[in-house]
Nucleic acid binder design. Structure first.
Lengths: 351, 351
DNA sequence: CTGTTAGCGCATTCAG
DNA sequence: CTGAATGCGCTAACAG
C-alpha cells in the first residue's frame, strides 16, 4: 500500500509537498500540484487515516450511541435518523461509528472518546437521569443528545416540541366534541414519554378540565401495549371517546384490538398517534398522527456537534423543533356530537 | 490525555512494560503488572487507537455498507441486523463504521479500506450485477455480503434459503386447495427478490402446474406496491385465491386494499408474507409469514468476516440459512375447498 | 514555493 | 523478565 514517500519519489518532490497537495495547501506551484496529483491517481494513493489521526489528534469520527433497548432500535424512526446523520456527516469529512450500549454504562460511552476513536458523540434517546450523561460531561466530550435534554455542559440537545403536539391534538379532539380523552403513555423512563404525559396533564388542567389518573394507560411504546390499552379503556366508566397514543406503534395495537372486539374506528372511538411511521397510512382506518421533521432534527444535531467539536471550552446548544400534524381518518366526532372532522392537511396514502 | 510514558514514569518502569501489560503479554512479573494496572486506573489511561492502528496496520474496525436505497433502510429488518452485528463484533475488539453509498459506487466502498479506516466490509443487500463487488474483489477487501451472493474471491456471503421458503408456502397453500396462486415480487434488482420469483416459477412447474406471467405482480417491497397488487389481482380472470408476497410490507398493503374493497381475509383471498416484521402480528387478520433467523445470519456473517480478515490470501465462505414459518390467520381454504388450515407452529401475538 | 527536522503513541525486534 | 532502539505515515514548525 503506497505512502506519501512513494508518491514523492515518483513525482520528484519531497513527501512534504505531497502532504501539502493532499491537504489543499495553496502554496504549491500549480504545475507541481498537477504532477503530484497525477502520480497519486496512477498508483492509487490514499492517505492513511490512522497516521493522520495520530498526528492531528482528531479521529474525524463521531460515535453514535444507540438506545440500550433492542425494541426501540427496531423503530424505523431511528433508522431514518441514522441515515440522515450519516449523510450530513460525510461532507464534513466525518465518519460515523456505531456504539451500542449493552455493557457497563459509563465505560461504553466514554471509552471510544478516551481512546481517541471518536471526537464527539451523538446519543439517541437517553433515559431520564441517565448516569452516562454525567460521565460524558465530566469527560468533556462534545455531545449532542437527540430526543432528550440535559443542563450539563458540553451536552447539546435537539428535541421536538412535545407540548405543542399534545396541545394540537387536544384542540383537535375538542373541536370534535370529545370530552373524555384517554392517554397512552410511552416508557416513562424516556424523557419524551414523560413530557408528553406531563403536557397532557398540564394542558388539560389549563383548560379547566380535571385530569384523571385513570385515563392514563402506561405503555412501553410497543404495539402490544396499545393492545392492552384498548382493553383497559373499554372497561372504564365513563369510557373515553378518544385516545391519544404517545406513538404510532401503540396506536396501531389499539386499532387492532378494537377490530378484534368488533368495534369501528372512528365511529366507536377515535385514536391518534405520533411519529407517522410508514405503517400509519396502512392501518384501517389510516391513522391521524404527527410527522417529525427527521432531516431537520438530524441537521440541527450535526450542526451543534460540529461547532461543539470545534471549540476548546464547553459549549452547548438547545434546539426545539415542531412536528407537523397529519390528519387522516382515525378521528371522528364524539358519539352524539355534531361537530365535523376538520380536514386540514389531508393526507392520503400515496397509491 | 495520558500516554504510555506517563504511566511508565509513575510506575517506575519503561513504557515498554506498560505496553506489555496493556496487551496482556504474559512475560511480565505479576507484581509489576499490578503496579502498572493500578497507575493505569488511577490516571485513567486509555491506549490511543490511532497510534495502535498505525503500528499494527489494523484499524480494528469493520465498515457496514448500507443499501443505497433510503426505503430499504427503513426496514426494521435491517436495524435488527445492524444491532446484532455490532453486538457480535465488540467481543472481537472490532468497531462498526457506517458507510452509506450515495456517491460514486466504487469510491464509497473502497476508500475506507484504502485509507485503512476499516479492515473489512459487511455489505447489506447489494443489487444484482453490483459493480461495487467487482471493485471490492479487485482491492482484495475481506468482505461478507448479506442477502446476496457472488462468486468473486474475497467475498463471502450469507443468505436465506429463498427456494425453501417459497416451497413451503406452495405446499401449504396446496393443502388448502388453492389452485390459482398470485405472486408479488420485490424489487427485481435485488437478488432475494429474483430468487423468490424464480423459485415460484420453478417449483410451480416442477409440480406440473403451468406458470403464468399474469400471476406475477412486480412490486418494490413497499406497502404501496401491495396495495397495487391487490387491485391488479382483483381484476384478473381467473382470479387468484391466494397470494404469496415477497415481503410483509407488501402483504400488509394488500390486506389494507382488501379491507378498503370490503373483502375479508382469508375468506375471500389468502395472503402470506416474508420477514415477520413486528407489524405482521398486528394486521387484521394476523399475517402468516416467515421469520428469518436474524441473530444466526449476523453470527454467520461476523464469523466469515473474522476468518477472512485473519487470512493473507483470498478466502470466502458461503452460508445458506433457513427461515421458519409463522402460521397465523391470513390463510384459509380456497373458496369451495374443503381442506382445513394446517395449524402447525401456531403463533399468536403476545398479549 | 519547497525541503528538513521532529514527534504524534505505540509495538516489533533485538539486547540485556 | 525488562529495556533501548526503531519506524508505522503523516503534519506542524521552521528553514531555505
Amino acid at each position: 500500500m503506497p505512502s506519501q514517500s512513494d508518491v514523492a519519489r515518483l513525482a520528484n518532490v519531497s513527501f512534504m509537498t505531497v502532504s501539502r497537495v493532499v491537504n489543499n495547501d495553496p502554496r504549491v506551484k500549480e504545475e507541481t500540484r498537477e504532477r503530484v496529483l497525477r502520480v497519486i491517481r496512477e498508483i492509487g494513493y490514499y492517505p492513511n487515516a490512522a497516521a493522520r489521526a495520530l498526528n492531528r489528534r482528531k479521529a474525524m469520527t463521531v460515535g453514535l450511541v444507540l438506545p440500550r433497548d433492542e425494541y426501540v432500535l427496531s423503530e424505523p424512526y431511528f433508522t431514518q435518523l441514522i441515515y440522515h446523520i450519516e449523510r450530513l456527516l460525510v461532507p464534513h469529512g466525518y465518519g460515523l461509528l456505531l456504539i451500542a450500549g449493552d455493557g457497563s454504562a459509563e465505560r461504553d460511552v466514554t471509552v471510544a472518546f478516551r481512546q481517541r476513536t471518536v471526537d464527539g458523540l451523538i446519543v439517541l434517546g437517553s433515559p431520564i437521569g441517565d448516569e452516562r450523561l454525567e460521565a460524558i460531561s465530566r469527560n468533556r466530550i462534545p455531545t449532542v443528545l437527540m430526543h432528550a435534554s440535559s443542563e450539563l455542559p458540553w451536552i447539546s440537545w435537539v428535541d421536538i416540541d412535545n407540548e405543542a403536539m399534545i396541545g394540537y391534538f387536544l384542540n383537535y379532539l375538542a373541536e370534535l366534541s370529545h370530552e373524555v380523552i384517554g392517554f397512552i403513555a410511552g416508557d416513562l423512563t424516556v424523557l419524551d414519554a414523560r413530557q408528553r404525559l406531563d403536557s397532557f396533564r398540564t394542558l388539560l388542567e389549563r383548560r379547566g378540565r380535571r385530569f384523571d389518573e385513570h385515563l392514563v394507560y402506561r405503555g412501553d411504546w410497543s404495539s402490544n401495549a396499545g393492545f392492552g390499552a384498548y382493553r383497559y379503556f373499554a372497561s372504564l366508566e365513563p369510557r373515553p371517546t378518544a385516545v391519544i397514543s404517545s406513538n404510532d406503534h401503540m396506536a396501531i395495537g389499539f386499532i387492532k384490538a378494537a377490530h378484534e372486539a368488533g368495534e369501528r374506528i372512528p365511529d366507536d372511538v377515535s385514536i391518534v398517534g405520533i411519529d407517522d411511521i410508514e405503517m400509519a397510512s396502512f392501518t384501517t382506518p389510516a391513522l391521524t398522527t404527527m410527522r417529525q421533521p427527521m432531516s431537520e432534527i438530524a441537521a440541527a444535531a450535526v450542526d451543534s456537534l460540529m461547532t461543539s467539536m470545534g471549540r476548546e471550552s464547553a459549549w452547548e446548544a438547545h434546539t426545539v423543533l415542531s412536528a407537523e400534524p397529519v390528519i387522516r381518518n382515525s378521528c371522528g366526532p364524539a358519539a352524539g356530537g355534531r361537530a365535523l372532522p376538520r380536514q386540514q392537511n389531508l393526507q392520503t396514502p400515496g397509491s
